[in-house]
């Protein structure tokens, strides 16, 4: 698939001298959900702001739908919807008018039916005539999304859509994102919740200190970098690992009652069967066993730590 957003050698140095983006290259494919994962201050928001035109790049280019975001900003920005991190809304206006305003601002002719349909898709239809300030926090976030969708963008940026949101609302937001993807909208979301990227993204990009460390298919990333662990509960406490098992990556945990074997899923043979046989030969009796897949979080922590 063709890239709908293409970021090339993008740099941003603020007036304070802070280098928020250091030569970022990123291609986002049409129709995908890309999660940009990174710790606070990694440059996630700066990257989004620069693509959307809020921040001026120091150097480098960004194109959206083939349009340069600086030279052809009208065409480029018309394709983009942005949901900011903070709940920035005009408190005294009604939901309906606020959303209609956004549509007009992006140059689309007034279309009350379209606005109503967007509100309905976000379960805001019964709040259409309410003032924004009367809504709950979760509802306000939905209004932000409705505003971003008002001009029917092809690319939607969600900056930390679930920061400070309770668990139920977060799942709710994930469903909204899934529904949007089904309509063909390309979605880029930033988050520092790994579980969020794991739950909804097609691809995951890891950003740290203004640099993209990697962008990869989520499943591929997890299988490639994921390590698995086999935990064996021992019948009797072991003080040392028998020397006959020294070829394996083993560790004793829980006071010697659990033997942990770490193996790589990339290898053709995991060595589990052989290990169990050899354990038996060494006289270690097991009572139970379980395996654990390392999460995206472990991968992420590993990456960011390596970078530090």
């Amino acid at each position: 698939m063709a890239a709908i957003v293409s970021v090339k050698n993008l740099r941003k140095t603020y007036d304070t001298g802070f280098e928020a983006l250091k030569s970022v290259n990123l291609d986002i494919e049409e129709g995908e959900i890309l999660a940009l994962l990174g710790p606070n201050g990694a440059g996630k928001t700066t990257l989004i702001s620069t693509i959307c035109g809020i921040t001026v790049p120091t150097s480098g280019t960004v194109s959206v739908g083939g349009f340069d975001t600086v030279l052809e900003y009208r065409q480029a920005r018309s394709l983009i919807g942005l949901v900011p991190q903070e709940i920035n809304l005009e408190p005294f206006e009604t939901v309906q008018n606020t959303v209609a305003f956004s549509r007009g601002l992006f140059g689309k002719p007034r279309d009350d039916a379209k606005v109503a349909a967007i509100l309905k898709s976000l379960s805001l239809d019964d709040k259409a005539k309410s003032k924004v300030k009367e809504l709950s926090g979760g509802m306000k976030r939905r209004v932000l999304i409705a505003k971003a969708l008002a001009h029917e963008p092809r690319v939607l940026f969600l900056d930390e859509p679930t920061a400070g949101v309770d668990v139920e609302l977060r799942r709710d937001m994930w469903n909204v994102v899934a529904d949007l993807k089904a309509t063909g909208v390309t979605i880029i979301l930033t988050t520092h919740y790994i579980e969020e990227a794991e739950a909804i993204a097609d691809r995951v990009g890891v950003i740290s200190k203004g640099q993209i460390l990697l962008v990869q298919d989520k499943a591929e990333l997890m299988s490639q970098m994921g390590k698995k662990q086999l935990r064996v509960d021992l019948a009797e406490r072991a003080t040392t690992i028998p020397s006959s098992l020294s070829d394996y990556d083993l560790a004793l945990e829980k006071d010697g009652t659990v033997l942990v074997y770490t193996y790589d899923t990339r290898h053709e043979r995991t060595g589990i069967r052989r290990l169990l046989n050899e354990m038996n030969d060494a006289g270690l009796v097991m009572t139970d066993l379980q395996t654990q897949q390392s999460s995206l979080e472990d991968i992420f922590v590993g990456l960011v730590k390596d970078d530090a």
């Binding site: 809020i54 920005r77 983009i80 942005l82 903070e86 920035n88 005009e90 601002l105 505003k147």
Partner: peptide, 16 residues
């Protein structure tokens, strides 16, 4: 006011 409440982001990201 848009600067104060943050809604200025929309003006800056709009094709205007």
């Amino acid at each position: 006011f848009p600067k104060f409440i943050g809604t200025i982001y929309e003006l800056l990201s709009a094709p205007v």
